[in-house]
Amino acid sequence: MKREIEQNLIKRACNGDKEAFSEIYFSLKDSIFGFAFRMINKRGIAEEITQEVFIFFIENSDKYDFEKGNLFSFLCGVARNKILNHLKKSGTRLESNNFESERFENFANNHSPFRNLLNKEFSAKIEECMAELSPLQREVLLLRELEDLPYEEIAEITETSVGVVKGRLFRARRTLAKELTPYVKSEEVLYEVHTS
């Protein structure tokens, strides 16, 4: 979303324009929810956090500073604080076995049974490896890989420096590469065999 359009929408939403708010909401809710869900790995809590984030925006939309960054970064920062608070309170790490079956439904559509099986296995492996990462490494990796955010923006959201972001990203990728490289290669080969 372009900056000017976003500003205009936010102003309108501040004045109670439902249409403007819904445009903002539908453009950002999946990203916020995805981030929360990958961090906590529980749909219910992730939805709660997403809801809280948007309610926070509704109540404090007039306090949002356009110059400090785009709205997604702002809301992502709010979501991050809530996620870390939840993790601190629960004192639990992500469990690799605690997957919910519904996340695989996305991949079950429009693919052959073989492809679906492959995707399921691969995504399960990715989930497992993500669970191995510390929350701080995980958040950096998610913001980079899923949202394509630049290092600077990630540093702003995570309240660190670009150097720290680079370091966390490097370590997270090393950990994932160790586990996933064989799968990635085999998946590519299998995919090529299957499609040919």
């Binding site: 999946d30 929810f33 939805e47 997403t50 996340r103 990715i126 990728r173 996933l180 990635v184 998946e187």
Partner: peptide, 18 residues
């Protein structure tokens, strides 16, 4: 390829009740 695989597998959407 790792980055591509993550982008393909990880995104997901919230429910309508939200």
């Amino acid at each position: 390829s790792l980055s591509k695989a993550m982008k393909n597998t990880l995104p997901m959407s919230a429910s309508a009740s939200l």
